Computed example of a mutant assay.
Amino acid sequence: MTQDLPIGRALRRFRRLNAIKQGHFAELLGVAQASVSRWESGTHEPDAAHREKIAALIAAQTGSDADAALKRLVETSTQAVHLVCDATHRLLAASPARAASWNADAGTYVGMSLWRFATREIILAEAGLAAAGWFERPFQTLDVRTGANGSREIPVSPGRMRWETIPLSGGRTGRLTTTLG
């Protein structure tokens, strides 16, 4: 589900924002602290089983009352916007304008990663986030140019989009993605 998605830097940000030491996170995963360090630095990637455990621990959700207003704002926005977990790209909410551009019911994708619909440009922009300090601070904004992804299901059209991180409850981080005119 989250294979191919860089997760080490998102883990680092999650730990820092929640004041969790590498050693404690390593205990939760049943690995050495050095493994967590290597994942966070990008020198190694976790295997599939550990990747899924990490994603489960750091994944953002909007099921809590604390995030209900944000979810409602996204779901009633007139702009083409959607909110995903910044670490896993799992869909948290989509506006009617965004859902209208999809050939699928947005509700069926809530909780599912949209990473498989990423364009080459989105993948390249994601790969550059760590070097740009994206995972070092909680509030980030980036404008991204993208081409089409060729998907009939969840199409991405050529154009510009803005990524903005939004702190969510429980120390998780969401990414608001807005299509720019």
Rank of each mutant, 00 (worst) to 15 (best):
M1A: 15
L5M: 13
L5S: 05
P6V: 13
I7S: 09
I7N: 04
L11I: 00
L11F: 03
R12L: 15
F14S: 07
R15S: 09
R16G: 04
L17I: 12
A19N: 10
K21H: 15
K21I: 11
G23K: 13
A26L: 05
E27F: 15
V31G: 02
A34I: 14
S37Q: 15
S37T: 13
E40R: 08
H44M: 11
H44R: 11
D47M: 00
R51H: 12
I54E: 00
A56G: 06
A56I: 01
I58L: 11
I58C: 03
I58T: 10
A59R: 02
A60L: 02
T62A: 06
G63V: 05
D67K: 10
D67E: 10
L70H: 08
L70F: 13
K71N: 00
R72M: 10
L73F: 08
T76P: 01
Q79T: 06
A80L: 07
A80F: 02
A80I: 04
V81E: 02
V84I: 12
D86T: 06
H89D: 05
H89I: 01
R90W: 01
L91A: 06
L91K: 05
A97R: 05
R98H: 08
A99K: 11
N103G: 13
N103D: 14
G107C: 05
V110P: 01
V110D: 01
L114V: 06
F117W: 08
T119M: 09
T119P: 06
I123Q: 14
I123N: 10
L124I: 00
A127R: 15
G128F: 14
L129E: 12
L129D: 09
A131C: 09
F135H: 10
F135R: 03
E136A: 15
R137W: 13
Q140K: 08
G147P: 03
A148T: 05
N149R: 07
S151Q: 14
S151F: 14
R152D: 15
E153M: 05
I154V: 15
P155S: 04
P158E: 12
G159W: 06
R162G: 01
E164V: 02
L168H: 07
S169K: 01
G170Y: 00
R172H: 12
T173S: 08
T179R: 00
L180T: 03
